[in-house]
Amino acid sequence: MQAVLDTIVGKIVDAVIQSVVVHVGFVFQYKKKQKKLEVEIKSLEEQRKQIKEKVDEAITRGEEVDERVLNWLAEVEERVQKIKDDSTINENMQCFKFSCPDYISRYRMSKEAENKMEEVKNLTQSGNFSTVAHPKPFAQELQFPSSSANYANFESRELVFNNIMVALQDSNVKMVGVYGI
Rank of each mutant, 00 (worst) to 15 (best):
T88N: 12
F154L: 07
N150C: 04
F98A: 08
Q143R: 14
K136A: 00
S105N: 13
Y103F: 11
T131M: 09
S99D: 09
Q81D: 12
P135W: 01
L123A: 01
K111S: 14
K84R: 15
H134T: 04
A74N: 15
E118M: 09
E119R: 02
S146G: 15
C95N: 06
K116G: 00
R79T: 07
S126Y: 04
S110V: 08
G127S: 06
I89P: 02
E118F: 14
K97C: 07
A139D: 01
K82V: 06
C100T: 12
Q140F: 05
K97N: 10
A152G: 12
F138A: 14
S126E: 11
E112L: 09
S99V: 08
T88E: 13
H134G: 02
N153V: 13
A133W: 06
K121M: 13
H134D: 01
D102H: 08
E112R: 11
E118D: 10
E77D: 13
N122E: 13
N115R: 07
Y103N: 10
N128S: 12
T88K: 15
G127T: 06
W72G: 00
S105H: 09
L142Y: 00
Y107D: 05
E141I: 00
S126F: 04
G127M: 08
R108F: 08
C100S: 12
P137Y: 00
K97S: 08
S146T: 14
F138C: 11
S147E: 15
F96P: 00
R106T: 03
T131P: 03
Q81E: 13
V132F: 09
T88V: 14
C95F: 09
E119D: 06
N153M: 12
E141N: 02
D102N: 14
T88R: 14
N150T: 05
K97L: 12
E78V: 06
N150W: 00
D86V: 08
N122I: 09
T88M: 14
R106C: 05
N153W: 01
E78P: 00
P135F: 01
S130K: 13
S146Y: 15
N122M: 12
S148I: 02
I83H: 04
F144R: 04
A149L: 11
S148N: 09
Y103A: 05
R79H: 03
Y151W: 01
Y103P: 03
E114Q: 10
A149P: 03
K97I: 09
S130I: 14
R157W: 00
E141V: 01
Y107V: 05
K84H: 06
T124R: 15
P145Q: 11
A139F: 03
E91M: 15
N128G: 08
E112M: 09
S110I: 10
E118L: 10
D85R: 14
C100A: 11
L73D: 04
N128W: 04
V120M: 03
S110D: 08
Q94S: 05
E155A: 02
I104F: 08
S156I: 08
P135T: 03
Q94D: 04
K97Y: 08
E91R: 12
E78W: 15
E75H: 00
P145N: 14
I89T: 13
F138N: 13
Q140G: 06
S130F: 07
